[in-house]
Amino acid sequence: MGMPNRKYADGEVVMGRWPGSVLYYEVQVTSYDDASHLYTVKYKDGTELALKESDIRLQS
């Protein structure tokens, strides 16, 4: 078993793309699913969504 190939840690605050949009919002990573390679993130309004790594970026 190798290390999970994840870029962002639980609790890390990053920018997540809103689905169907080009806009990124501040989100907190809450979990990562090794099987689906999706991150569960929480937006400031409390919305929780699963995002692909390509829809997440570090805060500038």
Rank of each mutant, 00 (worst) to 15 (best):
Q59Y: 14
D34Q: 11
R17G: 02
L49M: 11
D55N: 05
S31G: 15
V13A: 06
D34M: 09
D34L: 09
E53C: 03
L58H: 15
L23A: 10
G16I: 15
G16H: 03
L51N: 00
P4A: 11
Y43R: 11
S31W: 07
V13T: 11
Q59L: 15
H37S: 12
E53F: 06
K7P: 04
T30N: 06
S21M: 06
V29K: 00
A50Q: 15
K44S: 10
R6Q: 09
V27A: 13
G46T: 05
E48N: 07
T40E: 03
I56Q: 01
G20M: 07
T47A: 06
Q28A: 07
N5H: 08
Q59W: 13
V27F: 13
D10I: 13
S54I: 09
H37Q: 15
L49I: 13
M1I: 13
D10S: 06
A50V: 14
W18L: 09
G16Q: 02
V29R: 00
A35M: 11
Y8K: 00
E26K: 09
L38F: 10
R6S: 03
Y39V: 02
Y24Q: 02
V29S: 00
Q59F: 14
M1F: 05
E26C: 09
V29E: 00
D33K: 02
W18D: 03
N5M: 10
L51S: 01
D10T: 08
E26P: 12
E48Q: 11
D45Q: 03
Y24M: 06
E48W: 07
S36H: 09
E12A: 12
L38S: 07
V13G: 03
H37L: 12
K52C: 10
L23R: 10
Q59I: 15
G20K: 05
A9D: 08
E53A: 06
T30K: 13
L58P: 15
E12H: 04
Y39A: 00
D45A: 02
D33L: 05
G11R: 03
G16P: 00
K42F: 07
S21N: 06
Q59T: 14
E26D: 05
D33I: 04
D34W: 12
H37W: 06
S21W: 03
S31T: 07
G2F: 06
Y32N: 00
Q28Y: 09
S54N: 10
M3C: 13
T40P: 00
V29Y: 00
E12V: 07
K7M: 09
Y43V: 07
W18Q: 08
A9S: 10
G46P: 01
A50L: 15
L23S: 09
Y24A: 02
T47M: 08
W18E: 05
D33P: 01
Y39C: 01
A9N: 10
Y39H: 01
S31Y: 08
M15V: 05
D34K: 08
Y32L: 01
R57Y: 12
G11M: 05
R6A: 04
Q59H: 15
Y43L: 15
Y39W: 02
D45F: 04
T47H: 07
E53R: 02
Y39K: 00
Q59P: 15
D34A: 12
S60E: 13
Q28E: 13
W18K: 11
S60R: 03
G20T: 04
T40C: 09
S54F: 07
G11N: 06
Q28K: 12
T40D: 02
S21F: 03
A35H: 12
Y39L: 01
E53W: 04
E12F: 04
V22S: 14
S36A: 11
V41W: 00
R57G: 07
H37V: 03
V14M: 02
E48G: 03
V27W: 03
V41M: 02
D45S: 05
V29C: 01
A50G: 07
V22G: 14
V22F: 13
T30H: 08
G46A: 04
Y24L: 04
V29P: 01
K52N: 10
K52W: 08
A35N: 13
Y24F: 12
M3W: 12
T47F: 08
A9P: 07
L51E: 00
V22A: 14
K42H: 07
N5C: 10
L49V: 11
D33Y: 02
D34G: 10
M3T: 15
E12Y: 04
Y8M: 00
P19T: 03
K7R: 07
V41K: 01
S36M: 10
S60G: 13
D55A: 06
D55R: 01
H37N: 13
G2R: 01
V13W: 15
G16W: 03
S31Q: 07
L38T: 13
W18M: 09
D10V: 11
L58V: 14
M15R: 05
D33T: 03
S36G: 06
V41I: 03
G20E: 06
Y25C: 10
K44G: 09
E53I: 04
V22P: 12
D45N: 09
D10E: 06
V14H: 02
V29A: 00
A50K: 15
T47N: 06
Y43S: 10
Q59E: 11
L51I: 10
E26I: 12
R17H: 04
V14N: 01
G2V: 12
D34T: 11
Y43Q: 07
